[in-house]
Amino acid sequence: MSANRANAPYYFVPGLSHHPIMASFGMLFVGSGAAGWVNGYAWGPWVFAFGLIWFLFVLRSWFGDAISESESGKYGKRIDVSYRWSMSWFIFSEVMFFAAFFGALFYAREFSVPWLGDLNNKLLWPDFTATWPNVGPAGLVESFNTMGPWPIPTINTALLLTSGVTLTWAHHALLQNKRAQVIQGLALTVLLGAIFMGFQVYEYMHAYADLNLKLTSGVYGSTFFMLTGFHGFHVTIGAIMLAVILVRVMKGHFTPEHHFGFEGAAWYWHFVDVVWLGLYVVVYWM
């Protein structure tokens, strides 16, 4: 740790900030626009886009202030510990978020479908077969084909596993103060994440056009798109985080002793990798 950081205040407390209230207004526009959009109002997409741009601008300014405070030596050891605990709890909340969707999938497959096919319901739906997946007992869902594990999901699995290796390589290079290798490893990781998202977009197009698999395709379609869609969103966020870290590394930020910004983004990316492995097995194979 540099002498400047070693002599940092016991616990740095920033002054009053306008960022929280500005971010709240941005999220208000995002939520209102999204609600109007899904309900068919013409102003919905525009309000949503305005709120999103506003929110992203606030985040850029907010995180820029935090980066400036860190690089000026105001963050000592106790701030570092606070950031680590904050990121840990944030990732835990994300674990619970995905656990809810995995739980919904498990409940539908192991409880709801068998109950609909038991003897008590045969009088109501005599033609219903309790198999997974299905179009439901009421005949309201169009027939569809399921998404198998080959080739795109398997390719995406290889891409994410490889990105975990390149990110770990970049981390070890940072610990050894080999900045050129850090840049190379981070750039490869971001590129692999972008390729992953490109394949997922193609997979969704294939699902809608060729398989008739949609968000409205019963509980299978809803859980498939909710799990894979939210995971893709997290991959996008993780790639953006790593791209920001890449720019910071190129500007000379971080040292072998002081680089939690890098570590926090790496934790998030490895979490995304682990979630995908669960998705790959449960959604595409089972």
Rank of each mutant, 00 (worst) to 15 (best):
M1S: 04
M1R: 00
M1V: 10
S2V: 05
N4S: 12
A6E: 14
A6S: 14
N7A: 08
P9E: 08
P9C: 09
V13T: 07
P14H: 10
G15W: 02
H18S: 12
A23F: 15
G26K: 11
M27G: 10
V30L: 00
G36I: 02
G36Q: 06
W37F: 07
V38I: 00
Y41E: 11
A42Q: 13
V47Y: 03
V47W: 04
W54H: 09
W54S: 04
W54F: 03
W54Y: 12
F55S: 07
F63L: 06
D65C: 06
A66S: 06
S68F: 14
E69C: 00
S70E: 11
G73W: 14
K74A: 01
G76A: 03
G76L: 08
Y83R: 10
Y83E: 04
Y83H: 11
F90Q: 07
F90G: 03
I91H: 12
I91G: 09
F92V: 05
S93M: 13
V95S: 05
A99Y: 08
F102K: 06
F102A: 09
R109F: 00
R109S: 04
F111Q: 11
P114I: 01
W115Y: 13
L116T: 14
G117L: 09
G117S: 05
L119C: 07
L119N: 06
L124I: 15
D127L: 13
F128W: 03
A130R: 01
P133E: 05
N134I: 04
G136Q: 05
P137Y: 06
P137N: 05
G139R: 10
V141L: 05
E142K: 15
W150M: 07
P151S: 09
I155A: 13
I155Y: 13
T157E: 03
L160V: 08
L167K: 06
A170N: 01
A170I: 08
N177E: 11
K178P: 04
I183D: 07
I183K: 12
G185P: 10
A187H: 07
L188G: 06
L192Q: 10
H206A: 13
Y208C: 03
Y208W: 13
A209K: 14
L211F: 08
L211G: 01
N212C: 04
N212V: 06
L213G: 02
L213Y: 04
L215A: 09
S217Y: 00
G218F: 01
S222E: 09
F224K: 13
G229V: 10
H231G: 02
H231E: 01
G238P: 00
I240A: 02
M241S: 10
M241L: 15
R248K: 12
M250W: 03
K251S: 05
K251M: 00
K251Y: 06
K251Q: 05
G252S: 03
H253T: 02
F254N: 03
P256A: 14
E257K: 01
F262E: 11
E263D: 06
A266E: 08
W267D: 02
Y268Q: 00
H270M: 00
H270W: 09
D273G: 15
V274T: 10
W276R: 01
G278P: 07
Y284L: 04
